[in-house]
């Protein structure tokens, strides 16, 4: 599904990713863990295609295509979804109108027929219920005045709606208490499928108790320094990043 080879990325002239390589197969859930400043968010933004992240060398092949050649909206249409650590507030655009515009834009790009407002609302309501997202939230301006937990649940709702092939969850657990975390994790687990791969980016092991990964990678100083199964996450929890990063230096 996703093949990243020796990726070097600079932001405002400073190199953040220094030769990152990663392979994610179909249906697999991979965790990316690492200390602050290791380049975790840079990885997620580069995958989503944000301006200002310059790929100086290396490649990103997604479903056999060069992802770096595509603008963000094309990546979305091809099934890449980034659940942001800090979802953006957009006053003046209601949540449901945003969801309709986005869903139809993706469908249009894939030459699928667009859905009318009623159809979108039905779809959304259906998926919103299990995530505890109220009608009221759907009618309010996107993310405006939403608590941290509400914003994250809305990211998961979008994931459910857009049905991506590659979902990147950027520190989805940050700012959440246990109950909110469990609800979000449940929503994400619901979306696990053989045709869907996930990259769960997190600093803490806690989230991975609920979203159990197939593989864990440790990102430090711009590259992957350790890899293992889910036990690696527990080891990091117990011992911290220090020794792994030191060993790999």
């Amino acid at each position: 599904m996703l093949d990243i080879k020796d990726l070097h990325v600079a932001v405002e002239g400073k190199e953040i990713l220094k030769g990152l390589s990663l392979h994610v197969g179909e249906g697999e859930v991979h965790a990316i863990m690492g200390p602050n400043g290791s380049g975790k968010s840079t990885l997620s933004y580069v995958l989503a295609g944000r301006d200002g992240y310059d790929i100086t060398s290396g490649s990103i092949i997604y479903k056999g295509e060069d992802l770096t050649a595509m603008p963000p909206e094309a990546r979305a249409a091809r099934g890449v979804f980034l659940a942001l650590q800090y979802p953006v507030e957009i006053p003046g655009v209601t949540t449901v109108n945003f969801l309709k515009a986005a869903l139809n834009a993706q469908r249009r790009a894939r030459s699928e027929s667009e859905l009318d407002a009623m159809a979108v609302l039905r779809l959304v309501r259906d998926k919103a219920r299990s995530l505890n997202i109220s009608e009221d939230m759907l009618r309010r301006a996107l993310n405006v005045g939403f608590s941290g937990g509400e914003k994250k649940r809305l990211e998961v709702l979008q994931m459910a709606l857009f049905e991506p092939s590659l979902a990147i969850l950027d520190e989805t657990d940050s700012g959440l208490d246990i109950d909110a975390l469990k609800l979000v994790a449940e929503g994400v687990n619901h979306l696990r499928a053989p045709s869907r791969s996930m990259l769960v980016i997190t600093h803490y092991q806690r989230l991975l108790t609920y979203i159990v990964p197939d593989r864990v990678h440790v990102l430090a100083r711009g590259r992957i320094v350790a890899e293992g199964g889910k036990e690696l996450a527990l080891e990091l929890e117990a011992k911290g990043y220090g020794h792994i990063v030191k060993d790999a230096a």
């Binding site: 989503a48 295609g49 944000r50 301006d51 603008p71 963000p72 909206e73 990546r75 979305a76 249409a77 979804f81 980034l82 942001l84 979802p87 953006v88 957009i90 006053p91 003046g92 655009v93 945003f98 515009a101 986005a102 869903l103 834009a105 993706q106 790009a109 301006a141 979008q158 857009f162």
Partner: peptide, 23 residues
């Protein structure tokens, strides 16, 4: 960026934000 990462192209995203701005 948020809107584009959800599938809206640049023109659609700008249009949505402008309408929101004037709303």
């Amino acid at each position: 960026f948020y809107l584009r990462s959800r599938g809206l192209d640049e023109r659609q995203a700008r249009s949505l934000l402008l309408r929101a701005f004037l709303e």
